[in-house]
Design a protein around this nucleic acid. Sequence first.
DNA 1: ACATTCCTGTTATAAAATAACATAACTTTC
DNA 2: GAAAGTTATGTTATTTTATAACAGGAATGT
Lengths: 119, 119
Amino acid sequence: MLDLNRVGTIPGGLTKNQALVLEIIEKAGKPIGAYEILRELGPRGIKSPVQVYRAVNSLIQCGIVRKVESMNAFVRCTDAHPHRGQTTILAVCDRCGTVVEHHDETVDRRVAWAEQEAF
Amino acid sequence: MLDLNRVGTIPGGLTKNQALVLEIIEKAGKPIGAYEILRELGPRGIKSPVQVYRAVNSLIQCGIVRKVESMNAFVRCTDAHPHRGQTTILAVCDRCGTVVEHHDETVDRRVAWAEQEAF
DNA sequence: ACATTCCTGTTATAAAATAACATAACTTTC
DNA sequence: GAAAGTTATGTTATTTTATAACAGGAATGT
Ligand SMILES: [Zn+2]
Ligand SMILES: [Zn+2]
Ligand SMILES: [Zn+2]
Ligand SMILES: [Zn+2]
């Protein structure tokens, strides 16, 4: 499971727990915290935070989920794309909480310098 | 204390605790967590997390300290500038942890759209 | 079958942040 | 200067977020 060659695709090759967590994140439609995911999945057998965190981290590795650092929450990526090399900006709506992901090439150039300097 | 008209200036008008916390953040020279600040200031009378968080939040309001969300840590702003209206990018060095703050006008333009849409 | 690797479950603990309440200090206003 | 209002402080307890450590189970390749 967790095929790194299929980064960004909507995979059928997800683990049971990974699929469960992804389902909840998608259903939410906006950033959702790990413990809220846990509550939602309690009735379906997920009983501890580690299980959620493991699944979420796998999904992030896959490139289909992002962490919104400022909210300690996780959100589904809208389209299939690799997060490696391409810098992204997350815009979070103050009202409804919806997230729009920008793939800003200008920022890429700006950050390129930083990467040269090992940032 | 905490004069919002003097945002971004190196103020003499800081509270005792605010001054203590700022001193530690400055001495660190890189992002430092609230609980590490607490440990450093224990010998000087700061005994609880709330005290640190209160001071740090005030300093952020003043615009002289920033939170690095991805690290749960706080860093001194290198130069005096308002954080309102001007979007900034924080580049964190993988090796030494030093932070460089970019004031990217291009990003400003990009985000302007988002603000129009109430993001 | 055997070794390897990855996913799983469980318990306990760490790390980060806030809630709630009481007191002290500093300003205004009269 | 006394009363009232505001802001900073101290203290205790609790919540929220995240990881450590260990044991068992399922898949995969040889
Ligand atoms: Zn994405
Ligand atoms: Zn909205
Ligand atoms: Zn700054
Ligand atoms: Zn460096």
